[in-house]
């Protein structure tokens, strides 16, 4: 059997040989540069700390990176169905499960690459223009378990938690993409999940105290709040371990649906 990596290489080729991908990457690079340069030009105070700015920009960029990965995810499966290329892809000597896995892995690699570029540029530009000393007490809240730690450690954990949230949203979009083969639906629902999710659970948790609310996906995606010593739903007793367990269950369910639908379905049209 041929190396599985070649399938991932194929998926990568289909991602990185498109202009679109480089425009996305350009945006991730340009946004922190523009924001910081404009800030430096118009700001009158000099109290800004590079780490603060990095965290602010990163939180914005992570929404963007999530959307970008969702777009690529929907293209990766639903797109191949709509262009018909899926037929030529599935008649090769590989099981469908393996082909889907290669697509999923290429998406995770894509999100890791973009997160790394985001980390590098948000740190680089802010350290260069605003200064990023080792003292970053302003960026780490006193309530955080990381209070007193190095800002590197704090930001790394921040990225990890944001990335886990991204993986959940992308896995959801991958499921819609493979189950309904509709790129538009996949992108739309995932963006809804990303932005409306927190609002919906916020309203629910304020109006009712039913214990099932904490098992909802949205109630657990905001892992970064644990980093600052809080929890996604302050009215409920929740721990990081609990949220990770809930997310793991959703992760497994989403993937089980993606794979079972993709493996069974007849490819027509």
């Amino acid at each position: 059997m041929v190396d599985f990596w070649k399938l991932v290489q194929n998926e990568n080729m289909k991602i990185y040989l498109r202009l679109r991908t480089w425009i996305m990457l350009g945006i991730v690079v340009l946004v922190p540069i523009l924001v910081t340069v404009i800030y430096v030009l118009v700001s009158t105070s000099d109290s800004a700390n590079g780490w603060d700015m990095m965290k602010l920009q990163s939180s914005i960029l992570f929404s963007l990176i999530t959307i970008f990965t969702v777009v690529v995810a929907s293209e990766s499966v639903a797109g191949e169905f709509s262009t018909g290329t899926i037929k030529l892809l599935l008649i090769r000597p590989w099981s469908r499960a393996t082909i889907l896995l290669s697509k999923y892995i290429s998406l995770l690699l894509f999100s890791i690459l973009f997160s790394a570029v985001c980390f590098l540029f948000t740190w680089g530009i802010n350290a260069a223009l605003l200064g990023a000393g080792s003292d970053a007490s302003s960026v780490i809240p006193a309530t955080s378990g990381y209070a007193g730690h190095s800002p590197w450690a704090y930001m790394s954990m921040y990225y990890l938690y944001q990335w886990i949230q991204l993986v959940l949203v992308v896995t959801f979009s991958f499921m819609i993409s493979s189950a309904f083969r509709s790129g538009g639906l996949s992108i739309g629902l995932s963006i809804f999940l990303l932005f409306a999710g927190n609002t919906v659970t916020g309203i629910l948790s304020a109006t009712t105290h039913k214990p099932w609310i904490k098992y909802i996906l949205f109630s657990n995606t905001d892992l970064a709040s644990y980093l600052d010593g809080g929890s996604p739903l302050p009215n409920f007793h929740m721990t990081l371990g609990f949220s990770l367990a809930v997310l793991a269950v959703y992760f497994i369910i989403f993937n089980a649906i993606s794979w079972s639908v993709f493996m069974k379905r007849d490819v027509a049209a």
């Binding site: 040989l17 498109r18 030529l88």
Partner: peptide, 18 residues
């Protein structure tokens, strides 16, 4: 149906890898 955003050669390389 081939990948329109790839060249003919890239399409062949893609399927050859499989």
């Amino acid at each position: 149906e081939m990948y329109k955003y790839l060249t003919g050669y890239q399409n062949l390389v893609h399927f050859a890898r499989m």
